[in-house]
C-alpha cells in the first residue's frame, strides 16, 4: 500500500501539472478537493483518466468518485480493492 500511495502521488503531480508541489508535499489523507490541494472539476476528469491509463480501472458510478477521490489513500484503497476483485 505504501508503495502504491507513493506512486500515486508522483503520478498526480505529473498528470495534473501541479506547480511548486512535490510528491512528498502531499499527505496520505490530505483532501484532494475543497481546500486541500485546491483541485477542481477538470482535475477529477484527469484523475479518472489516470486510473484508466495506469491501472485499467473505470469508475462506473459517479457517486463512487466522491469517495475514491477524497485523498491519495482512498484512491490507493480503491485500486487495491478492485485489483483484488479482478484477480
Amino acid at each position: 500500500m505504501d508503495q502504491l500511495i507513493a506512486d500515486l502521488k508522483g503520478q498526480i503531480v505529473v498528470q495534473l501539472k501541479l506547480k511548486n508541489i512535490k510528491r512528498e508535499d502531499i499527505g496520505d489523507d490530505q483532501p484532494l478537493f475543497g481546500g486541500g490541494l485546491g483541485l477542481d472539476s477538470l482535475d477529477v476528469l484527469e484523475l479518472i483518466v489516470l486510473l484508466k491509463q495506469k491501472y485499467n480501472l473505470r469508475i462506473s458510478n459517479p457517486e463512487d468518485g466522491l469517495k475514491v477521490f477524497q485523498s491519495v489513500r482512498t484512491m490507493a484503497e480503491f485500486i487495491t480493492a478492485n485489483r483484488v476483485q479482478n484477480m
Binding site: 477538470l42 483518466v49 491509463q53
Partner: peptide, 13 residues
C-alpha cells in the same frame, strides 16, 4: 498514443 481510448481532457478542452 492511447489507441483511441479515453485521453486526458485538458488538452481537448
Amino acid at each position: 498514443q492511447e489507441n483511441e481510448e479515453p485521453v486526458t481532457p485538458v488538452a481537448f478542452v
